[in-house]
């Protein structure tokens, strides 16, 4: 594996499979134990550098690092020197001087983790950059699908919603196709990027036509504000055409699962009874996130010497 995890597009099949296998082994090693902690990364320092609020992702990374006995520093952009105009580079050099072995970065600018990787010697983990990628989310989604359905090869995954602005969608497109899944993007044309035709995926504007042929449906968060920029006329119309409700869920094959990266807009892209149904993996995804992030930190940091 490379020194950094910047994008899912970087992972080949062997690397991606190793992350998932390692996460499964970690799950197994920790299953049923009272002591959920491993000494693996004792003496290593992991910095969570979050320029955007994302409590759930930050906590997941924090828990993953702590379960591997790393020292964790949370560096939130708010209330720090960053909010006083310190540049990303100066922050990077500061963290470097403090001896950070890994920097987990969340940033509103696409490519910020790539920039950071040029300025530090430690490993950089992309925890979501702008509308680019969120590779650990895709890894935990792949892990969840494999765990539930037993495989990824040939699994039909529908990713539904605001693909244009979604880093989760991008990472899943690259990772799932690398792992052999067949991905179909479902969205109104306004919420698909120009150039999507070059991606190794199917594209549909019709959710009802896709559902009967989907083994997993991943619903993306759709922000209601998008309608102000005319991406769609109204929340109601969006929900009617692209929302997953009980009627639509019934069209899915028997074993199919329903996924959501969270946080959900209940009633917008997903109905409450769907989110809480037995098909839903939404809670499971959160738990898997910790194992997958442990695997990533172990694989990036376990063998590194500074």
């Amino acid at each position: 594996m490379k020194r950094h995890l910047l994008e899912a597009a970087d992972l080949d099949r062997a690397d991606a499979t190793l992350v998932l296998d390692t996460a499964a082994q970690i799950d197994q090693a920790l299953a049923g134990r009272e002591v959920k902690k491993l000494p693996t990364l004792r003496g290593r320092t992991v910095v969570n550098l979050f320029y955007e609020d994302s409590t759930r992702t930050r906590i997941s990374f924090e828990l993953a690092a702590k379960r591997l006995s790393a020292d964790v520093i949370n560096f939130s952009a708010k209330g720090s020197s960053v909010s006083k105009g310190e540049s990303l580079k100066d922050t990077a050099l500061t963290l470097e001087a403090m001896g950070a072995d890994a920097i987990v970065v969340r940033h509103s600018a696409s490519g910020a983790p790539h920039r950071l990787a040029n300025w530090v010697r430690g490993s950089v983990v992309n925890a979501g950059d702008g509308t680019h990628e969120h590779p650990t989310q895709a890894l935990l989604d792949a892990y969840t699908i494999r765990h539930r359905l037993g495989r990824l090869d040939g699994v039909r995954v529908a990713i539904v919603g605001d693909v244009l602005h979604s880093r989760v969608a991008r990472s899943n497109v690259w990772l799932l196709t690398t792992l052999g899944a067949e991905v179909t993007l479902v969205a109104p044309p306004t919420l698909l990027p120009v150039g999507v035709g070059s991606w190794p995926v199917g594209v549909s504007y019709d959710l009802d036509a896709v559902l009967p042929k989907a083994d997993a449906v991943m619903m993306l968060r759709v922000q209601a504000e998008r309608m102000n920029a005319s991406f769609f006329p109204s929340a109601r119309e969006y929900s009617r055409r692209y929302g997953l409700d009980a009627r639509r869920m019934a069209a899915l094959p028997d074993e199919a699962i329903v996924m959501h990266p969270g946080p959900m807009n209940r009633g917008m892209e997903i109905a409450a009874d769907v989110a809480d149904s037995v098909r839903s993996t939404i809670v499971e995804q959160v738990g898997n996130g910790v194992s997958v992030r442990m695997a990533v930190l172990y694989l990036l940091l376990g063998g590194s010497t500074r």
Binding site: A9, G130, T131, P193, V194
Partner: peptide, 10 residues
């Protein structure tokens, strides 16, 4: 705007 901007999220 094209396939690269789509992938890079710019």
């Amino acid at each position: 705007e094209g396939h690269r901007s789509a992938r890079l999220g710019l």
